[in-house]
Design a binder for these strands. Sequence first.
DNA 1: TATTGTTATACTCTATAACTATA
DNA 2: TATAGTTATAGAGTATAACAATA
Lengths: 149, 149
Amino acid sequence: MSPPRSPGALTPTVLREVSSDLRLACMRISRRVRSESSDTLAPHQFSVLARLEKGALTPRALAELECVSPPSMTRTVSGLVDRGLVDRTDDPEDGRRVILSLTADGTRVLREIRRARDEWMAVRIRRLDPEDQAVLRRASVVLARVAAE
Amino acid sequence: MSPPRSPGALTPTVLREVSSDLRLACMRISRRVRSESSDTLAPHQFSVLARLEKGALTPRALAELECVSPPSMTRTVSGLVDRGLVDRTDDPEDGRRVILSLTADGTRVLREIRRARDEWMAVRIRRLDPEDQAVLRRASVVLARVAAE
DNA sequence: TATTGTTATACTCTATAACTATA
DNA sequence: TATAGTTATAGAGTATAACAATA
């Protein structure tokens, strides 16, 4: 029995080919963006800052979100506090807890890294001819959906 | 003066939006492929195996290609040799040199990792409607070109 | 004397286990 | 007694400096 496939959908062979090409392209672009847009933060530091951007969190919550042990998070956060990118304050309602939040500098660093990364991509899309640009414009919507699932 | 832009090309505003969405989608997909396709190798190990797949290399050449110090490469290679994925033999023409190559097991591991990663992507593309699949089919060609530039 | 590869040593990020302070 | 966070310690990965063997 062959798998169900709506009329007009990719054949199994083409599906395999497209999946492989697309997967490889995403991973290569991702690697090049990271290595060529001169990030000032290590990946785990960037990731923590991005979490805090959506709202203040405790070290424990951050550790769970980032799939890392509490002691590792203590260390990562300490580095960010030392650099003035994260603020650490005691929870007034529970003396055991600590509340972590982004500083203005943290917000600025995050924005600058994103700007540089987006620029890397924009430079390359600007070089394409209008037809290819249109293809990527439509693909960006579909890929964003795939990435978010 | 505004930048040169061929007729039909994306406006600066749309270009920024598409670049940002596409860049983020690529990075998210890349991260999820790495974390959800249960790789049996660390990224630096996979990378070394993929280099050796194209042909045997010396430790020094590998270190340069991977932008890593020779002692680090010694360590990485030792781990792969211990796992039976890489073969280390003396160069018969130059007693100082060592020649590293993939074993049959190394080839098999590499192929299995790629298969699992491609499958992650294929599962998600299969779920899309035919129109979105067609968009990604065309985009895969353009993105592969961008990634390879 | 220059080059290849490895060993010695140190720094970072990760982890688990033990400890302190608070609920 | 349970929980939040940190400190103690150890295991990978990275690096630079020093060393052995060969050209």
